[in-house]
Computed example of a mutant assay.
Amino acid sequence: MVHSKLRSSTSFNGQVGKGVVDLPLETISDILTRLPIESILICRVVCKSWYDLTRDPDFVRLQLSRSNYQRTRFIIQPTIQGFANDFRLLLLDAEEHNIKQIPIEREVLKGAEIMCSCNGLLFIIPYFKLNPMVIYNPMTRQRLILPSLDCEVNVRPGEVRPTGFGFDLSTGRYKVVREYLKGGIGSNRFWILSVGESSWRKLSPPPLCLIHWTWYGSESVFWKGVLYWKMVKLNFQGYDEVGILAFDLSEEKFQIISFPQSYTNETSLDLLDLDGRLTLVAHEPDAIMKLWRLAGKKIGDFSFCLEQTYDTYVRWNKNLFCQVISRVNHNGYLLFVVLKKDGSIMTHVTKFFPQMAQYMHLDLPLIADCFGIHGFRPSLECPVSASHLS
């Protein structure tokens, strides 16, 4: 429902011109929220009433609720050997094969990377420091710098670990989880911040664990009020147990979900929200790709069930591996492919259609040989407004 102060008809200069249909703002709101974000931003310059309408919090929430029905877009960040080498962000529409540059302030990306996203907002952190941390909407170019995490000790570069960013459904607040390693393996420290508050709170850590952090980062996955990471559970028998680390943003508690079968370090694992379901993808060295779906209604009851097995016809290894980043046309997958050769790293994006045993390379102009990629669904969410919620 549109805010009461905007509940009226719309016209230009107070009158309805020839050929112009005078519609209630509720009807216009229903129409506009179904459009791509770029079209909504263009509509803002049509007239003042549409400008006010599209900035109204109720309109923003309605558009966000419908964003899941729009196709996934991708943010691309050029890199050198896994680290950002310039200050550009590119927006990719893989289905339309369209790519364009997103204007962004230089200081936002200086020495930093996109770690994860939630509701169209990107979470950007430095490579080797805890601060500064930025929430950024690449479509509206609005940003919020979070309060610094001031620890009781100095943190060295190798001790900074991945992060998580999600939305607490019970409070309507965004929350950030940070981890750093202090004192060796098993000495993980966890902190949490509710966006809008001025200070961080220390969390009770999960059982001995170390979040798996590959060269392209260990993105958290936000799904239905819970953050998930791939992780390695350390024990005292001399071997590691692979699993999922889950953090309920409402209860602020950790849980470890074990994988349904053991995997060696020769198997590459992806964790992502695929078609609205949390999915684990295992790329096995014998060219087999398995999709495991998370079953269960709440944290504590979750388990993984095998859903699909495909022959990829490629023997993936440590020097040639891929990551599933999205579904394509209901019968294919979008892959982020990484090739390591002679000390250099090259990346590209390709479509894989299992039933046809076909790969289709995406030619991406404006992009160097190496880049990072992050899937997200654009929204009008304002980071600053999120910090002012009561």
Score class of each variant (00 low, 15 high):
274 L>R: 02
274 L>E: 02
274 L>D: 01
274 L>C: 03
274 L>G: 01
274 L>Q: 01
275 D>M: 07
275 D>E: 12
275 D>S: 09
275 D>H: 07
275 D>K: 13
275 D>R: 12
276 G>I: 05
277 R>Q: 12
277 R>E: 12
277 R>A: 09
277 R>L: 10
278 L>T: 00
278 L>I: 01
278 L>Y: 01
278 L>G: 00
278 L>W: 00
278 L>S: 01
279 T>F: 09
279 T>K: 11
279 T>Y: 10
279 T>I: 09
280 L>W: 07
280 L>P: 02
280 L>V: 15
280 L>A: 10
280 L>K: 02
280 L>M: 13
281 V>L: 08
281 V>C: 13
281 V>E: 03
281 V>M: 08
282 A>M: 14
282 A>W: 11
282 A>G: 13
282 A>L: 14
282 A>C: 15
283 H>I: 03
283 H>Y: 11
283 H>A: 10
283 H>W: 12
283 H>F: 12
283 H>S: 10
284 E>A: 05
284 E>R: 11
284 E>Y: 08
285 P>C: 05
285 P>D: 05
285 P>R: 04
285 P>A: 04
285 P>N: 04
286 D>F: 06
286 D>A: 04
286 D>L: 04
286 D>W: 06
287 A>V: 02
287 A>K: 14
287 A>Q: 14
287 A>I: 02
287 A>Y: 11
288 I>N: 14
288 I>V: 15
288 I>T: 15
288 I>R: 15
288 I>P: 07
288 I>K: 15
289 M>Y: 03
289 M>H: 02
289 M>K: 04
289 M>R: 08
290 K>A: 12
290 K>W: 06
290 K>R: 15
290 K>D: 13
290 K>T: 14
290 K>L: 10
290 K>G: 06
290 K>S: 15
291 L>W: 09
291 L>G: 02
291 L>S: 05
291 L>N: 04
292 W>L: 00
292 W>N: 00
292 W>K: 00
292 W>G: 00
293 R>P: 02
293 R>I: 12
293 R>A: 13
293 R>H: 13
293 R>W: 12
293 R>V: 13
294 L>S: 01
294 L>H: 00
294 L>I: 04
294 L>E: 00
295 A>S: 14
295 A>P: 02
295 A>F: 09
296 G>L: 04
296 G>A: 03
296 G>F: 03
296 G>Y: 02
297 K>F: 08
297 K>Q: 12
297 K>G: 06
297 K>V: 09
297 K>W: 06
297 K>T: 12
298 K>C: 14
298 K>Y: 12
299 I>Q: 15
299 I>D: 09
299 I>R: 13
299 I>F: 07
299 I>P: 04
299 I>N: 10
300 G>V: 06
300 G>F: 07
300 G>L: 08
300 G>A: 07
300 G>W: 08
300 G>M: 07
301 D>L: 01
301 D>T: 02
301 D>E: 09
301 D>M: 01
301 D>F: 01
301 D>R: 02
302 F>K: 09
302 F>P: 07
302 F>G: 07
302 F>L: 12
302 F>W: 15
302 F>H: 15
302 F>R: 09
303 S>P: 05
303 S>T: 11
303 S>C: 13
303 S>A: 11
303 S>F: 14
304 F>P: 01
304 F>Q: 03
304 F>S: 01
304 F>G: 01
305 C>M: 05
305 C>K: 08
305 C>N: 07
305 C>E: 10
305 C>A: 05
305 C>F: 04
306 L>Y: 04
